[in-house]
């Protein structure tokens, strides 16, 4: 656990209101962990606690084997934090926005160009931050944290409000980081993103974790229907009970060459969340 994250019974109270309640999570080194929840569930508060921006009311949070409340400048070299409210220097170019931090961390201009290329901003390197689209700003913020080659990466809603192409590009960058063994803590209210990227997710509702586990396993766990859906070439939709007899029936349809598509009926994380809380993730 020394290189991962451990959250032990963390609680946070603001003006007498508990916004985080008994949070317990272990995140292994190299894992992509997704914290899913609607707006106001406490996702950003938890990131702030883990990154030492906020001191929790109760419990303990460890990152890189250290108490998150005692992180030093040296520790922050190993932690990349991308939060929506972290600004850019609007009157500086993309290149200069990175160069400021490169000067602090003694990173070369070539490395800056390399990271700009990686995030697809090399051609826009002279563009002022104030003239960038939201997607480009997110990618520049991501470049700023990736430039440090962090061991742990905190991404707070990295694809919120972006077009599908930019979302794909950012997912690609996150996948690259996974290949490098970076531990990633991701918050999102996009269940498809969590299913695609995360090894484990926690569903957070009103400050409490209501479910935790591998996204696919969670979907299987809450698959109460246990049905198989067939779409036939003649346009018919057929639902079959997923029991012992289904193999024979399916075989018959396939032998006759009638099946165009076949699907199981596990719920997605959105439906799991709704079942557990009665709320939608994006509300």
């Amino acid at each position: 656990m020394k290189n991962g994250i451990e959250i032990m019974n963390v609680e946070q109270t603001f003006n007498g209101k508990k916004v985080l309640n008994g949070i317990n999570v272990k995140i292994e080194k190299g894992e992509i962990f997704g914290l899913l929840g609607p707006s106001g569930a406490g996702k950003t508060t938890l990131i702030k606690i883990l990154t030492g921006q906020l001191k929790q009311t109760e419990g303990k949070a460890e990152i890189l084997g250290k108490d998150a409340r005692k992180l030093t400048g040296e520790d922050y070299k190993k932690i990349g934090i991308m939060m929506d409210n972290f600004g850019l220097y609007e009157r500086l170019s993309c290149f200069d926005n990175l160069k400021l931090f490169a000067k602090i961390y003694e990173i070369t201009d070539d490395e800056i160009s390399g990271i700009l290329k990686e995030v697809g901003l090399l051609e826009a390197k002279k563009a002022l931050a104030m003239n960038l689209s939201k997607g480009m700003r997110n990618r520049l913020q991501l470049a700023r944290v990736l430039m440090l080659k962090p061991n742990i990466l905190f991404l707070d809603e990295p694809t919120s409000g972006l077009d599908p192409a930019t979302v794909d590009a950012i997912h690609g960058l996150i996948e690259n980081e996974r290949q490098k063994g970076t531990t990633i803590f991701l918050t999102t209210h996009n269940m498809a993103e969590a299913e695609k990227l995360c090894d484990n997710v926690a569903l957070l509702n009103e400050g409490k974790i209501v479910e935790y586990g591998n996204p696919k396993e969670l979907c299987r766990k809450y698959n109460h229907q246990k049905k198989i859906k067939l779409h036939l070439y003649d346009g018919q939709n057929i639902e079959l009970e997923h029991d012992k007899s289904v193999a024979k029936i399916l075989n018959r349809y396939f032998e006759q060459g009638l099946v165009e598509t076949i699907h199981s009926t596990e719920p997605d994380l959105e439906l799991v969340f709704m079942e557990l809380t009665g709320r939608k993730l994006d509300k």
Binding site: G73, E90, F101
Partner: peptide, 14 residues
């Protein structure tokens, strides 16, 4: 206001 100072302070700048 723009939180750039927070980023700097979390980047080993005292």
């Amino acid at each position: 206001e723009k939180n750039t100072l927070r980023v700097l302070l979390m980047s080993n700048v005292k």
